[in-house]
Amino acid sequence: MAESSLRPMNALGDTHSVETSGAHAAPDLQFENLEQQHATRVFGMWIFLVTELMLFGALFLMYTVYRAFYPAAFAEGSRHLDLALGGINTAVLIVSSLCIALAIHAARTSAKRSQLALWLLAAAVLGIVFMVIKGYEYFLHYQNGEMPVFNWTLTGAGAGHVQLFFWLYFAMTGVHAIHLSIGIALVGIMILRALLGNFKPNAYTPLEMTGLYWHFVDIIWIFLLPLLYLIAR
């Protein structure tokens, strides 16, 4: 707030880097110029990410409370997770984030559609790889009787507390997976638009927004790894 509070409105001037030809040269009605339109939309994405942060934040809170109540049961629950699969998935997502960053780099530096589309495709494929591995993990939990409601076979003292861990595990990774699926769909749309030639070095706002979303989903996973997989010891 402080940054823009002292400066009069940003709508004036500053059209230097704006392309003046082509189908995307005119900003929407409410904007003075493309510069302002881009900044506004990206800012809107950041606000959206903050709401997403609070959405996941509620889950992180539930995790914190229950882990403080039942540390032993959480360690026990974590022992049932497959660290190798979790670790591989982390690497997969990190590399997919790199691909997104490279895609935006390509969009901004070259006019070649194919390069942009290929990096996006790589990111989407890695996203799908993540989902497949995650699905396999879920399948294993189901087989091992670690899936509340559908197949839960753990019994004995403290089994209820372990089940709470698994409720949180499925809630957190599930909500994350839903977000990643949306991300994959968005990247798919971006691939189509890239092939149609929608993006130019100075007109790449939707790519930027998709990228921010993708990286955010990556960050959430980066916290899920230590909180879920690395607490058994």
Partner: peptide
């Protein structure tokens, strides 16, 4: 923007718990 998402996810979990009669706020599990 800051408060509504917290309510949203919480209500989803209540609905899930209701659907399956067991869940994250279930006192029977602790």
């Amino acid at each position: 923007v800051l408060a509504t998402p917290v309510l949203a996810i919480t209500l989803v979990l209540v609905a899930v718990e209701r659907l399956f009669h067991v869940g994250i706020f279930d006192p029977a599990l602790g």
